[in-house]
Nucleic acid binder design. Structure first.
Lengths: 354, 354
DNA sequence: CTGAAAGCGCTAACAA
DNA sequence: TTGTTAGCGCTTTCAG
């Protein structure tokens, strides 16, 4: 059977194509109930489904929302992508998924391509300090929602940001360790050259200082070089950090704040390589609270991001704004992270006490 | 600046639009070198990019490949989606991602919608015994590649399947446990109502029988009911299985083959709840070899699926077939799984020996 | 070897 | 309140 078009529906309903089009586009006020009913019936009977390509060609836009994540290979982003897809589906949209590998150039290319393909709403999971690489598209009218990156002073007006308050997250994580009696706490991250990471780091510093401790006195791990930017390697970073930090036992921390759960898990693995026991010997706390945090042995203490809620927010900002104007453009939504205490953090080991 | 169309290019190159179109569609034999060069120059100068919507409207197809996975929330599928995206990118295609939650109805709807939207190539990660729910679209010309589901006798001719040989996988896993001296080996799965799962189960049975053991003598876990079909809950399944199997210690296994790594990890977690130690007390083996298998404590023995290779195959079958006709339609590619031995499997504990 | 013209399915002026 | 019409940007016969 051939494709059924708006013409067929019009014919079957005894009206003109434009009336059907009006019907389809929620301008039903413009027609009398009987007409509406006839169109409805015709659509149902013929099993008509509007052709997206034609619609897009005509309107210059899709019903698709673009989602650019660092990498779905990382369980956190996989879970987030999943939530985004669920939320978008509820609003009748599909999701075009792209992995940026945290490469600014790939981010730019993807955003541009999506734009060229008629995608007018993009959720960009980036944490680059600047949005310059995509600002020209924003100026043309792209509705951009950044995720995991609070708004920065120089961001274009129209951008909305969804993220947790990473500074608070860093503080909460560190404070938890301090309360357990730790005074030698390292911060482990592949690179803190991104706004959310540096916010977490600042939270860590703030908490330390509030406790009268100096960051300079903490065991330092200078991380891997910037070329290891991908999220797939997050676990590798943690593992390397464990190896390096404990190479000199006199300078080894009793606790660690990891930039995310994958890094934390990698760190735990590294500890294991060294014959150290997570919790008993070294406390480890991560960020994100991915499913695996609870599955791990020992279950990992983590700072939870409420991804379901965040995905809903991101999608509704991306899709519905313009019609709803629910949030002020240029604003940041900063959700409160939640500390989930499990067994990877324990009181400072007695041997290390004064 | 306004959109640059094929017209502009034509004008700039001093030719007609149709010539440019010919150029674009690799019919360059139809024009003299000088013309070609002028068009190339014009495209470069104007920064022309063809409009996909128009192209699609005209051709009735996209450059997009649809990917339907059970759920990117499961790290295995996240990793696979990532590999697919990489492979597609290399071929100039984008990926439209859909989560079926293993619901046949959602699978059907997604496949239909993708088709309606002009997507002509779909990688469907399903393990439903029948493809009936999408066969009408296949008849209309959909290029379908199934993943994780070997071809079945009644499948439409044109379908190509990519998967590992799950039967062999099940055998290898079980044989490994047998070699370690285990004789009480349970099989843990949420449901084996899918072709790949039942193949793994059969492999398990085969190996047992080859060793002169009877499946009926093994501790049985009858799984959760079919409503728990999602991949997100895989870990829950494992955890529940551990609780149930060890409720009656006289009937507890010394080793377990889990249907996948997430279930295996959940099982390990369940063991921990019971104060049992993975490896020492109970050996656990999973399937997939997700990144986390190596990160876990103890690192998980697993049957690896070569996802990078599989993703490449799936994408090239989905996109390039028709031009290439590389593989016979209707065929199955069955890759060999690889046993990765780590520390979650050990010799049968002495207490359990005769 | 290249150009002119028709039309894919839909929408938004504008007319009636 | 509904119909007519003119394209959106591209490809593809069919003439030149």
């Amino acid at each position: 059977m051939a494709r059924v078009t708006i013409q067929h529906v019009a014919q079957a309903a005894g009206v003109s194509p434009s009336t059907v089009s009006n019907f389809l586009n929620d301008r039903q006020g413009r027609m009398v109930a009987a007409t509406r009913a006839r169109i409805e019936a015709a659509i149902a009977e013929l099993g008509y489904r509007p052709n997206r390509a034609a619609r897009q060609l005509r309107n210059g836009k899709t019903q698709t929302v673009g989602l650019v994540v660092p990498s779905v290979g990382n369980p956190f982003w996989g879970a987030f992508a999943h939530e985004v897809e669920v939320a978008a589906l509820a609003l009748g949209c599909s999701v075009l998924l792209c992995n940026s590998e945290r490469d600014p150039e790939r981010e730019r290319r993807y955003v541009e391509e999506l734009w060229e393909d008629g995608v007018r709403s993009i959720i960009l999971c980036t944490s680059l300090p600047s949005l310059d690489h995509v600002s020209h598209v924003i100026e043309e009218g792209l509705r951009l929602v950044t995720f995991d990156r609070p708004a920065q002073p120089n961001d274009p007006q129209s951008v909305v940001s969804i993220s947790i308050d990473n500074n608070v997250g860093g503080q909460v994580a560190t404070a938890h360790l301090l309360e357990l009696g730790h005074t030698s706490i390292a911060f482990v991250s592949g690179s803190i050259r991104s706004v959310n990471r540096s916010a977490r780091y600042r939270g860590y510093c703030d908490a330390l200082e509030a406790a009268g401790l100096s960051v300079a006195d903490m065991p330092q791990w200078t991380g891997m070089d910037a070329s290891h930017f991908g999220d797939v390697e997050a676990a590798e970073v943690g593992r390397a950090a464990a190896r390096d930090l404990f190479a000199d036992p006199t300078n080894a921390p009793t606790a660690v704040v990891a930039i995310n759960d994958m890094t934390a898990l990698g760190f735990c693995r590294g500890l294991r390589d060294l014959g150290l026991k997570v919790g008993r010997d070294v406390s480890v706390i991560g960020f994100d609270d991915i499913i695996l945090a609870d599955l791990y042995d020992p279950p990992l203490t983590s700072v939870r991001q409420p991804i379901t809620r965040m995905a809903q927010l991101a999608v509704s900002e991306a899709i519905e704004r313009g019609s709803n104007e629910s949030t002020d453009p240029g604003s940041s939504v900063l959700l409160r992270p939640e500390l989930v205490v499990r067994e990877s953090t324990e009181h400072v080991p007695s041997a290390a006490r004064p």
